[in-house]
């Protein structure tokens, strides 16, 4: 048998999208390996999650009933214990923020080679994984010469598997005492509440690293004023403290779906695109004609924002 063990991701009572995607990735890999796909569901209301994840292509669901929320000691320990029990060829874990917190520990304690943040997987006498490098400027292929192996998969790269089926659910006993864990979750905090909710805006003017200096933000403020738009930004602007966190669009910020999203000086890293690809019309201004933002733009202006934006302000003054 050459099975695949995949681990589901959930948070605060809801199964996260990447779980449905990792089932697709796991099914495809299990087909290549001619094996079964096992899905682990760890912590929280595991029966409800198992029901949600009873999907065509999953051969068995293993529930680990322990703890309410994510804890990396629980996830790493339970995944490693399931690995010992099932002896799969591949362990797939999500490259989510929680995945980053336990997947490397799983690979380390099981002594498995780890391919992180894979965007495609193929198996033919060995694993070949595709991943990005240099800030998404290139894709690379890596081959893994040892088995078993561990992979973390990037969210949004595999189509969600939604078709339901009756999947056998087995409870897997794993003893866990959260109070003995060296890292204990105390709670959650929603960040980015504040004066405006950019998720409500119809027209977002969004600014990125290309603005170069904090004082140059005045230019964007002026554009926002004459057009009646709402200002948002990519991560570096918030990291620099130039705009508050509630203005940040992207994976760790807000997801927005305005009628028009005007991206100014934003290259379009995958984490940013995750937050704005649902906009109806995307317009990008960037000096780099190869910037990935143009891949998802409906309208593109290859040019210097310091020339184009003042001219645009004049149009509406």
């Amino acid at each position: 048998m050459s099975d695949v063990l995949a681990v589901a991701d959930h948070r605060r009572g809801a199964v996260r999208d990447v779980s449905f995607e990792i089932v697709r990735a796991g099914r495809e890999l299990a087909d290549d390996l001619d094996g079964d796909l096992h899905l682990a569901v760890i912590a929280g209301d595991v029966d409800a999650f198992a029901d949600r994840l009873s999907l065509a292509g999953v051969d068995a669901i293993h529930t680990v009933e322990a703890g309410e929320e994510f804890n990396h000691d629980l996830y790493a320990g339970a995944t490693a214990a399931l690995f010992e029990e099932l002896a799969p060829t591949a362990v797939l874990m999500p490259n989510s923020v929680n995945g980053l917190d336990y997947a490397p520990a799983v690979a380390n304690r099981l002594d498995l080679p780890l391919v992180a943040d894979a965007v495609d997987l193929a198996y033919d006498d060995g694993l070949e994984a595709t991943r990005e490098m240099y800030g998404s400027k290139v894709e690379t292929t890596v081959e893994v010469s040892e088995e078993p192996f561990a992979v973390t998969v990037r969210g949004g790269e595999w189509a969600a598997l939604e078709e339901r089926a009756d999947v056998p659910v087995e409870a897997f006993e794993y003893e866990f005492d959260e109070s003995a864990s060296g890292a204990r979750v105390q709670g959650f905090e929603e960040v980015g509440a504040g004066d405006v909710d950019i998720a409500d805006a119809e027209f977002l003017v969004s600014v990125g690293r290309g603005i170069e200096e904090e004082e140059n933000l005045e230019l964007i403020e002026e554009l926002v004023e004459v057009t009646g738009a709402t200002m948002s930004s990519s991560r570096p602007i918030v990291d620099n403290g130039w705009l508050p966190k509630n203005r940040q669009v992207g994976q760790s910020g807000k997801q927005v779906t305005p009628d028009v999203y005007l991206a100014i000086g934003i290259s379009g890293a995958v984490q940013h695109v995750a937050g704005m690809k649902g906009a109806e019309t995307i317009i990008a201004i960037n000096t780099d004609p190869n910037a990935p933002i143009f891949d998802i733009a409906d309208y593109g202006i290859v040019g210097d924002l310091f020339d184009v934006v003042p001219a645009l302000i004049e149009e509406f003054e």
Binding site: R11, G182, V185, Q186, G192, K245, S252, G253, K254
Partner: peptide
């Protein structure tokens, strides 16, 4: 604080 996706932070104590 661990920065999770979607503007949520997890508050965690680490020894």
């Amino acid at each position: 604080h661990r920065e999770l996706e979607g503007g949520i932070e997890e508050l965690t104590d680490v020894d």
